[in-house]
Design a protein around this nucleic acid. Structure first.
Lengths: 162, 162
DNA sequence: CTCGGATCGTCCGAGTCCAGACGATCCGAG
DNA sequence: CTCGGATCGTCTGGACTCGGACGATCCGAG
């Protein structure tokens, strides 16, 4: 699926070179940079892109979820999720089983193989993130995460009238 | 072009709900959140999405650039840039002129109208960013921008052997 | 039991992105 | 001057995304 070697979204990476002071572009650039590294690591262990390990991460907690619930959790369109699950199932990293109490729904579950692959990826991910924050002290990291979470979860921008 | 009301990339936004501690997902979520707001503001003043005002921002400094140089500066694929420029030119926000010294190249330039639209957008952008950082003191903002820039500009991840 | 509406996963069509091909143009070697 | 290679903008084909439609299934009202 796609060309894993290229950026997930090419607008993100190099913007910063031109406009280093803009918050939004910096966020995109930083996110794109991290994703590039993570996609690379994912490809090295047979996953395709960010969605693959996102789904595995969600399934790794063992909770039973329908595909629709899963698509909401990882915020991937339910249509797109199908192709992701198809691929993961083909590689035997997950299985889809029919819920006996509701034959409409499919319950995707991670396999031992999938768990192993995800664990391996998680190590690479943690390494990449540690590397990205190398030299930043603990309070700085906490502040960064807090600010990012605040921006991400902020409810409304209320910039209606301009 | 596209559906401006939806997210630029649906993987970015709600990931945080599931995995709030992951740096990469937080970056994506925060970037997606900001972009959603900015895209909304852009649509309200006739632009289409992030690429439109990105191009305008790059052209606003008045420097002469070929389309290829421009595509590199804003990190938009040169093929995709064509459609952006076509649309901006149709709305008379930019003009493409042929460089007399090299008839292969086209020099896009922002028009007074384009400059006006971009200035209007820049106000909304600054408002959105100020809103996002509301309640964060100056040293916190500086630290955030510094860390983001560091992550974005980091040269290599060196996570080859896992 | 029956049946109409709601909800699941899947499929299809329109739109988008981008690697590679293409014509037009430039430029340096001869 | 000529001409082969490099570089510009544009076009095209294949792959992907996602809104809406579809069949299958569930469930509550009657």
């Amino acid at each position: 699926m796609g060309t894993p070697s290229s950026h997930a979204d090419q607008t993100e990476l190099a913007i910063c070179a031109a406009f280093p002071t803009d918050l939004t572009m910096l966020l995109h650039a930083a996110a794109g940079r991290m994703t590039d590294d993570l996609d690379l690591a994912a490809v090295q262990m047979g996953l395709n892109d960010v969605r693959d390990w996102l789904v595995l991460a969600a399934l790794d907690d063992g909770r039973q979820r329908t595909q629709l619930e899963l698509s909401r959790v990882v915020c991937v369109d339910k249509t797109t999720l199908i192709s992701v699950l198809d691929r993961l199932e083909k590689h035997e990293l997950i299985v889809r089983s029919v819920d006996p109490s509701d034959r409409r729904v499919r319950i995707p579950a991670i396999t031992p193989t999938g768990r192993k692959v995800y664990a391996k990826f998680a190590i690479a991910r943690d390494m990449a993130e540690a590397c990205a924050l190398d030299g930043v002290d603990q309070s700085g990291r906490a502040l960064l995460m807090d600010l990012l979470a605040r921006i991400a979860h902020r409810q409304d921008a209320s910039l209606s009238g301009v």
